[in-house]
Simulated scan of single mutants.
Amino acid sequence: MNRVNQQEADQNPEATLYIGNLDENVTEAILYELMLQAGPIVHINLPKDRVSQTHQGYGFVEYKTEADANYAASIMNQIWLFGKSIRVSKSASDKQNGFEIGATLFVGSLDPLVDESTLQQTFSVFGPFAKPPRISRDTDGSSKGYGFVSFTDFEHSDRALESMDKQYLMNQQITVTYAFKHDGKGGRHGDETERLLALQAKKNQYIVPQQAIQAPPPGATSRRG
Rank of each mutant, 00 (worst) to 15 (best):
F148A: 02
G147P: 03
E194F: 01
L161C: 06
F151E: 01
G145P: 11
S143C: 05
R195E: 05
L169E: 08
S150W: 05
F123A: 07
Y178A: 10
A179E: 07
L161N: 05
V149K: 07
S143N: 04
Q120A: 09
D153S: 10
K185V: 08
D165M: 13
T122C: 12
G186H: 07
G190C: 07
L169C: 05
T152S: 07
A130G: 15
D140Q: 07
S136V: 15
G184Y: 03
F123T: 03
D153E: 07
D158H: 04
K144A: 12
G147K: 05
G186K: 14
A179S: 09
E116S: 14
E116C: 13
M170G: 00
L196A: 12
G184N: 03
R159M: 12
T139K: 12
K144R: 15
T152G: 06
A160V: 07
D191L: 10
F154G: 01
K144S: 10
P133K: 04
G186E: 11
E155N: 12
S150D: 09
F180T: 00
E192L: 06
H156P: 01
Q121V: 13
H182K: 09
L119R: 04
S124G: 06
G190R: 02
G190Q: 05
F180R: 06
G127D: 03
